[in-house]
């Protein structure tokens, strides 16, 4: 059967979300295998350009995982991510990237089950949205 399998890039912070992903694996929680994880030292280092590049290079969704506000290993890195997320989301929307394709989640190191839940939810949501294709490459010409 030819089911659409989304490709999701997940930027996970080294101190919380990545550990949660690890814990989810060790605990043998069921997770859909559509996520490619990129470990970053802090969610605060994920520049909007990285998200843009992921979409430009064929990702169907991007997940940024960070520590809960107040828990950041670097004190305020996740607040920086939070500040960017709303404006980035608006920009992506204007460029034709649906809201559900970009997600920022706070996942603490102990929250393995939550990580698995977020991933599974996101995969299903993007599966229903279909593959991300930049408007320019969408098949039919929109004109006339």
């Amino acid at each position: 059967m030819n089911r659409f399998e989304p490709r999701i890039i997940a930027f996970l912070c080294n101190w919380c979300s990545y550990v949660a992903a690890d814990a989810a694996g060790v605990a043998r929680l069921t997770q859909l295998p559509n996520v490619r994880v990129i470990r970053v030292n802090c969610s605060g280092m994920v520049d909007p350009s990285y998200v843009m590049k992921a979409f430009a290079d064929g990702a169907d969704g991007v997940l940024i995982g960070g520590c809960h506000p107040g828990d950041c290993h670097y004190i305020s890195g996740n607040i920086k991510t939070l500040r960017r997320s709303f404006l980035l989301k608006s920009l992506l929307r204007e460029l034709g990237v649906e809201d559900g394709r970009f997600r920022l989640e706070w996942i603490a190191a102990s929250e393995g089950p939550r990580y698995a839940k977020v991933v599974n939810e996101m995969v299903e949501e993007i599966r229903s949205l279909g593959p991300y294709v930049p408007p320019q490459r969408r098949s039919a010409k929109g004109a006339a």
């Binding site: 320019q136 490459r137 969408r138 004109a143």
Partner: peptide
């Protein structure tokens, strides 16, 4: 980076 606009014709 995300090309916008209909396909080239």
């Amino acid at each position: 980076a995300l090309p916008v606009g209909p396909a080239k014709d």
